[in-house]
Write a protein that binds this DNA or RNA. Sequence first.
DNA 1: ACAAATACCTGTAAGC
DNA 2: TGCTTACAGGTATTTG
Length: 266
Amino acid sequence: MPELPEVETVRCDVQKIFAGCRLKQLVVTGRRTVRRHPAGDLACLHGRTLQEARRHGKFLLLGWDQAPTLVVHLRMSGQLLALPAGTKPAPHTHAVFKFARARELHFVDPRTFGELFLETGQLSHLGPDALGITNAQMAAALAGRRASVKAVLVDQRAMAGIGNIYADEICFRARVKPDRPAGGLGPEEVRRLTRAVRAVLRAAIAARGSSLRDQRYRDVLGNLGGYQLEHKVYGRAGLACPDCGALVQRGRFGAKSAFFCPHCQT
DNA sequence: ACAAATACCTGTAAGC
DNA sequence: TGCTTACAGGTATTTG
């Protein structure tokens, strides 16, 4: 599921392929994808030139030669795919960006959780981007919270970009059990978490993100990511911890699961 | 104020 | 084989 490393990979691809290109037309066929807007509202983007693809947490921000910015969120199953002009849209294609120079960008999203909207301050609640989190920011996010470490890591107001997969991998790298109360961590554990956030996210970006069994996540050219091969605990319940050989356990974290090594993490 | 639960979806996989 | 059910999870919203 797209989290920060996957969105960053998509951002780089969109920047590389489409920056400087003029948007001839944005064809929207999925009403739910643009649910924050009345029909036709995004037509204001016609004729604009893409300047820069930015990112905050899991939100992709497309900046044009005029305001406003277009926000893209892939949520659970969204893809952005670069395709030749005139390509027949695949099933579940909800929007097609038709650029000059015979290039198209298709927004495909079977589960329809993803969305496109014009930025008007909706992202102001987001915490600092997790990729650049400082130890002071991490300490502030954890301090005084009774919620679990994992709950804080995936809380987009505390820090933006971490989801279920990377929260488990980060907790493993920091050797902290995900259900520990966040406010109870010592300074050394906080430092380990800060370093783990940065190390895991950077390694995952270098591997171009994680594609899970459903292979739903792909980059803009349709290629799979490679970081799933480096997962140490996520999705590995009952398998040996790569560091100590103990069996990875699967716990429950609210409605979602948490994977951890009962021996390495305390 | 904070924390936990729920709604939103559909493809996939497991169970019977 | 074919059906039913459970599960996956990010965010906004609701409930506790």
